[in-house]
Computed example of a mutant assay.
Amino acid sequence: MFAPALPQPLEPLLPDYVRADGGVRLRFGRVGPRTMRLELAESGGYRARFPTAYDERCEAVLINTAGGMAGGDRAVTRIALDPGARAVVTTQAAEKIYRSQGSQTRVETRIEVGAGAELAWLPQETILFSGSRLSRSLDVALAADAGFIAAETLYFGRSAMGESLARGLLHDRWRIRREGRLIFAEDLRLDGAIDAALGRKAVGQGARAAATVFVAGPGQPDKLSGIRAVIDGDPAFAAVEAGAGILDGFLLIRLLSPDAQALRRALVMLLGHVIGRALPRTWST
């Protein structure tokens, strides 16, 4: 069972000062042959931990100690890579967006990747609860030869509990620039009866989970045929609609499925091909 939809008040029922507002700021740089964390700032209930890495990359795991976010909460993540640095940033677990009393939950991610640097931004899925109101943004600034991989996943309700998103808000905004030039811009907005909107053939055709994978860096057009072969031939995609294409030199992959766990299995397998290495351990625990 889940709580029924409530009318949204004009003013939030809880004042701003009792809401969570925090985040993490990270900067990575080369120290000899390895990438190390050079700066770390944590605020609110947000933390970053750094598992031991066995190659030149540095891995960071972001943690929300509150275990989820509600209406009026705000989280800001800032990540910067100095020239030549290589890093992977993920999250400890899925982020839960709980029912709102009217205010939006705000999640902001701002990333800068310097010359010759490479970042894999791999947060685990975001789960939207019935009545949630999420405004999320991803702003990325890339140097001319920087490499960048991003994977963002959304689960629309908790299907295992029979939950539907009869009411809610999702505004997902991406802006990615290379040398100051905008190369990718996207705004997704679903407001009101999200389940009904996703049921339309031109929108989601009944999807309960969706993922976007963005890959920028040298040689992406050469990888397209291999990625499409995986999508078309691997059994993990039997219950997943997926497509891949090249736009302005970067690779863009979309996944949709009525089964959230099927989408996750397909995404894990796909990211292994895209990244060329095992995913962070938090993805399998």
Rank of each mutant, 00 (worst) to 15 (best):
D139P: 04
G243H: 09
E95I: 02
A146I: 03
R178W: 13
R265G: 09
A3N: 12
D172A: 09
P123I: 05
G29L: 13
P235R: 03
I227E: 00
A244P: 07
G162E: 02
E112C: 14
F156P: 09
K201G: 09
A202D: 11
F28H: 04
R57W: 09
P280S: 12
D232S: 10
R254A: 12
A94T: 06
E39F: 10
R57M: 12
A143L: 05
A70S: 15
A242C: 00
Q8P: 06
V76N: 08
D82T: 10
A239H: 08
G217E: 14
F237S: 01
L252Y: 04
L81I: 15
G162K: 02
T77G: 03
F148E: 02
L119S: 13
A211D: 03
A166I: 09
R136T: 08
D187Y: 03
Q205E: 15
L6I: 14
E179K: 15
G206H: 09
G243M: 08
L267E: 11
M36A: 12
G68L: 03
A266T: 06
P221C: 04
D248N: 11
G116K: 11
L14E: 06
A3Q: 15
Y46W: 13
L62S: 09
D55Q: 05
Y46S: 04
G32I: 13
M69A: 05
Y98D: 06
I149H: 04
H273R: 13
E42K: 02
A185I: 05
L247R: 11
P218W: 01
M269F: 00
Q101E: 15
L14S: 05
V268Y: 00
I227N: 00
A202K: 03
R189G: 10
E112N: 14
